[in-house]
Nucleic acid binder design. Structure first.
Lengths: 206, 206
DNA sequence: GGGTTTGGTGTATAAATGACAATAAGCTTG
DNA sequence: CAAGCTTATTGTCATTTATACACCAAACCC
């Protein structure tokens, strides 16, 4: 989020965004805005939808096209845009009232992310190339666990059974290092195999 | 589709669309454009996404926000918009090369519709209030059957078992009339019951 | 009343899901 | 180096869900 440094909604938190240049595709604009905030290039980015209520911006007609991205926030520092006082990562569960209709936008994006992460293997975008099954499970839990307490946790044995049954994880025969307990085995996602299966009609589903 | 009466793409078929007025929400604009073409109001309409490649319109920068709608085409006559030579319903399987990036837009919308019809009971939007199970099954088949021959037909017994097990169809104890064979029982979708279940976390899935 | 056409139904097998707890392995510390 | 700590790893059973498959029933038409 960025904290707005000017009216309207001065001081309020808002999702970062900017105007699209006349000679810029929407996807390119989204990449640019993301880069301006995080310095990141080439990360996963997906359009969600357009928000176009007439009165959503007090100063004029603004149509926003929302995107979500997947970023390992530990790897990058956020830098506030020029029109922002500060930029800061917020926990999804602790987002208060945002500027404009950004709460609605956030909701839409979260909903899309939750569906997407179960239907395609985008989760691996967020993990290092070599990861443990526990890390993978924690990732899924942090994305999928609903605030409403819909389902609080995933069963470890069932999760491993299901994810390994896809045969898309390659056991590297390497162990995690630097932990103060029994180290876990490291796995790698086999993207080539996945692409191949998709071409044959396969559909990932967790 | 409308057949374009002016350059660019004169004579080509295109999805109907129009510019959004300054004081008009996106959803309202979609409703207006639909009404101009079909005379219809109050039908199901859903935004899919925005298309904004810089060069998608030869004459300038145009960003299109795509919607799909569910319409019983037998009930309404299409009327060409002012800038169109003619307006005509096309079978999805027989759509040729369209103007602009409209083939891509159509693909996106179809994909969304196919997902949506399995995850929410929007199918009933297209049926009369009283319908037979065969009509319902034919509706699902016509939407879901993939061109790639993914799955050619739904099993009658399994379909009925599954749809009736939701307990969302109300058996009206009425029979179809005017058919030259054994008439089928008529059913009604229980929307109130559905809304109630959804509030409790229920999720429709066929 | 017989023919035609679509409506309606059940069962058995396979597959997927969900619940559940004990042992194994590496690390740390005394 | 042994004991203790912490997390990793593994299998079975019961239940539910999916799938394959074929015959009789009922209304209409002639």
């Amino acid at each position: 989020m960025i904290q707005r440094g000017a009216a309207p909604y001065k001081g309020k938190w808002a999702l970062p965004g900017d105007l699209v240049y006349p000679n810029e595709d929407l996807d390119t604009a989204a990449e640019r805005v993301l880069e301006q905030l995080t310095g990141l290039r080439g990360v996963y980015l997906e359009q969600v939808r357009a928000f176009g209520a007439v009165d959503r911006h007090p100063l004029g007609r603004v149509i926003t096209i929302a995107y979500f991205s997947l970023i390992k926030i530990s790897d990058y520092t956020v830098t506030p845009a020029s029109f922002a006082q500060s930029a800061k990562w917020h926990s999804v569960g602790k987002v208060g009232e945002l500027a404009f209709d950004h709460n609605e936008i956030l909701e839409s994006c979260l909903k899309r992310l939750r569906r997407k992460v179960r239907m395609t293997p985008i989760g691996f975008e967020l993990l290092p190339p070599k990861f443990t099954l526990t890390e993978l499970q924690q990732l899924y839990e942090s994305i999928l666990v609903q605030p409403k307490g819909n389902k609080q946790r995933i069963d470890k044995r069932n999760f491993r059974k299901k994810i390994l049954s896809t045969n898309l994880l390659h056991d590297l025969n390497e162990l995690q290092a630097g932990v103060a307990h029994r180290p876990a085995k490291l796995y790698q996602f086999d993207r080539d195999k996945y692409e191949l299966l998709v071409a044959e009609g396969y559909s990932f589903d967790i």
